[in-house]
């Protein structure tokens, strides 16, 4: 075991893992965290906490993760390179480990032009691959990026992201291979709507044997409405919702019926993804809709979640 985290143990046991995402509040309102964490209790193995996602300022990932940990839940701390240089990143990682956090997802981070502080100066001192390598060395060789010894252990299960839908397509497997070489332990992919392209990407991943070196969790996102699907198609680069799904969402109508259809489509997607060689789990990103996660996991036949008590 590299970290002994619950997520690592579940994946190592061969169980199909379920992770979900929790978006912290846009301020220090702990009650929001408490409400959302209860929606996720018992329905997933670990909870990703976003780090100023889409460059919008929110309660810090480390603090939110610490709250989850104190309340008996398993956090995955997301860490981007947009807002911190290598000093701040390492310091925050030490802090997270000291507070009991054992999973870290290493990301480059969305550019600040998309957020609520577009005039900010970005950092990008490191990129996600350099971040993965730095954390792996902190953990495995007990040295900082600057070469000094680390006081204490850094038992982190190191994650990374993969976007099989960005261009150039050929670079997408190369990027994964580099993350593996850098020392990544698990991957959570971008939301999958385009199943054929994801299959093509996974085929190449499997052909290179990368699926045996890293746990791959396929990303999914439930759609709340046909409008949400259209919004994604128009505004989110790198992925598109196929017409077949848009048709189903449109046919479902509005409100509760649309949300139910969105949950159903998401659960079906999970069942399809489970059958793909090399997919070891699923990562559910229900942005500001954490209520959807329990019914999705239930409908996908993934409840109850494995217990590691024994």
């Amino acid at each position: 075991m590299k970290s002994g985290s619950k997520l690592e143990r579940i994946l190592a046991s061969g169980a199909f893992a379920v992770t979900a995402e929790l978006g912290p509040p846009k301020g220090p309102d702990v009650s929001v965290v408490m409400r959302k964490m209860e929606l996720l209790r018992g329905v997933c193995d670990a909870i990703n906490v976003t780090d100023n996602q889409t460059a919008i300022v929110r309660l810090s990932s480390a603090a939110t993760c610490a709250l989850l940990h104190q309340n008996g839940l398993e956090p995955v701390m997301q860490m981007t390179c947009r807002d911190r240089n290598r000093l701040a990143i390492q310091s925050d990682i030490f802090g997270a480990v000291a507070l009991g956090i054992r999973n870290l997802l290493c990301l480059t981070g969305d550019h600040q032009v998309f957020g609520n502080h577009p005039t900010a100066k970005n950092v990008y001192d490191l990129d996600s691959i350099q971040l993965i390598q730095m954390v792996a060395r902190m953990r495995d060789e007990s040295v900082t990026a600057g070469g000094d010894p680390v006081e204490g252990e850094v038992p982190l299960f190191i994650g990374g992201a993969a976007n099989p839908f960005g261009d150039p397509f050929e670079m997408r497997v190369i990027r994964l291979a580099k993350k593996v070489a850098a020392g990544v332990d698990f991957i959570q992919t971008q939301c999958i709507f385009d199943l054929p392209r994801f299959r093509e990407w996974m085929k190449r991943v499997v052909d290179q044997g990368l699926h045996e070196k890293v746990y791959i969790l396929a990303g999914v996102m439930p759609l709340k409405s046909v409008g949400a699907a259209r919004y994604i198609n128009r505004n989110v680069p790198g992925f598109s919702v196929p017409n077949s799904i848009i048709k189903r969402m449109r046919a479902a109508g509005k409100g509760k019926k649309a949300r139910e259809e969105g949950i159903k489509i998401c659960a079906e997607m999970i069942q399809e993804l489970r059958e793909i060689e090399g997919v070891r789990g699923v990562h559910i990103m229900a942005v500001e809709w954490e209520e959807a996660i329990r019914p999705i996991v239930e409908r996908a036949g993934l409840l109850p979640r494995p217990s590691l008590e024994d």
Binding site: C81, R82, T108, G109, D110, H111, V113, N122, Y124, D127, S128, I129, Q130, A161, N163, F165, G166, D167, P168, M171, I174, R175, K178, Q190, P237, G238
Partner: peptide
């Protein structure tokens, strides 16, 4: 590259354009 990435493109590269300003910017990594 809008993020000065040294190890390949981020997820925001689409049809050779950079998500930060697709009209004006090419993806350096493409």
């Amino acid at each position: 590259c809008a993020k000065s990435l040294l190890n390949g493109p981020c997820g925001g590269s689409e049809n050779g354009r950079c998500e930060v300003d697709p009209e004006n910017l090419e993806c350096a990594w493409q």
